[in-house]
Design a protein around this nucleic acid. Structure first.
Lengths: 162, 162
DNA sequence: CCCCACTAGTTAAATTTTTAACTAGTGCTA
DNA sequence: TAGCACTAGTTAAAAATTTAACTAGTGGGG
């Protein structure tokens, strides 16, 4: 019977394919990552963001925003990584409420060991199978989507309510 | 410095955009869904799959496979939905180890009330912004990806290990 | 037939994530 | 410059998820 009407059928199909494949992909990448480096996907992503940041450090809030993590989830995440020696935490000089996560040498080393495996995994499972036009299309679509959603965040109002 | 090399830069950009936007999108859809119907995204998805299944029932394993859920996660999910009266559980006639989740009338009603809102949310946040070529591209890419990943599942071997 | 290795699904414990309440600090404004 | 609403981040308790062990049942080979 299809409660799916109201989304034309080609779009419904796109939606289904996207959701399911994405879920599988994330699961697969996470499995690969943990198979060859004691990192979760979240751990890895934190390391990447810190490694690219000036001074290899970021404010908690900034990090949470980029990871799309709730504040408390990030607190937990970082303290776990801190216990494992991958990051440290420092008070923020210009705002005494704030703190920043800082990449440690061990964290950088761990990242550099994990990255080749992880990137190979991204290539094998996703990228190698895409032609240039597809890559361009994904970039265009998801850049736009990301930008739009980044904006929604504060705008409280959700989707069109009739 | 960029540990990102080994993925050419256009693909790296696509990858980043895809991950981040997807994360935001899923978060947003989940928020919308819970704002206007007491359902999580997982609840909703279970209801959809059951509503489309013959006899509005599915084996636990089948459901877990389609949702990309671990068996124990699904057990938990279904028992929660059972407590809320959205599904019931029956022994499987032909395999006495198995059980099947069955959609209840209340579950179907709940789904039919939630669906318009949810679909509007999918449209607003994602689909309305895509042109037909983009929809076609996403479908092609993610159908292929899904198919490929569905196959990997049992094939133990992960990505190319040099 | 009857073992026995395998499959389906559940359960219990540990870990992670969410929710809600809270602490501390900031900065506007009156 | 004191009051106050707001921001940054943490904490504690509840809910969800993973991991690992387990129960029950199946089905093929000997």
């Amino acid at each position: 019977m299809g409660v799916t009407e109201s989304l034309d059928s080609t779009r419904a199909a796109a939606w289904r394919a996207y959701i399911e494949a994405s879920q599988r992909l994330f699961t697969q990448l996470e499995d690969d990552l943990r198979a060859d480096s004691d990192l979760t996907f979240a751990d890895y992503h934190v390391l990447v963001l810190l490694s690219e940041a000036p001074g290899q450090r970021l404010r908690m809030g900034e990090l949470a925003g980029r990871l799309v993590f709730s504040p408390s989830r990030l607190t937990y995440q970082i303290s776990s990584m801190q216990r494992r020696g991958l990051v440290s935490k420092e008070a923020c000089p210009d705002d005494r409420r704030g703190s920043e996560a800082v990449l440690t040498a061990a964290g950088l080393l761990t990242l550099s060991e994990a990255a080749p495996h992880h990137l190979a995994s991204v290539r094998t499972h996703l990228m190698d199978d895409l032609d240039d036009a597809e890559v361009a299309c994904l970039t265009r679509v998801f850049d736009r989507l990301g930008t739009r959603l980044r904006a929604v965040r504060t705008t409280s109002s959700t989707h069109a309510t009739s």
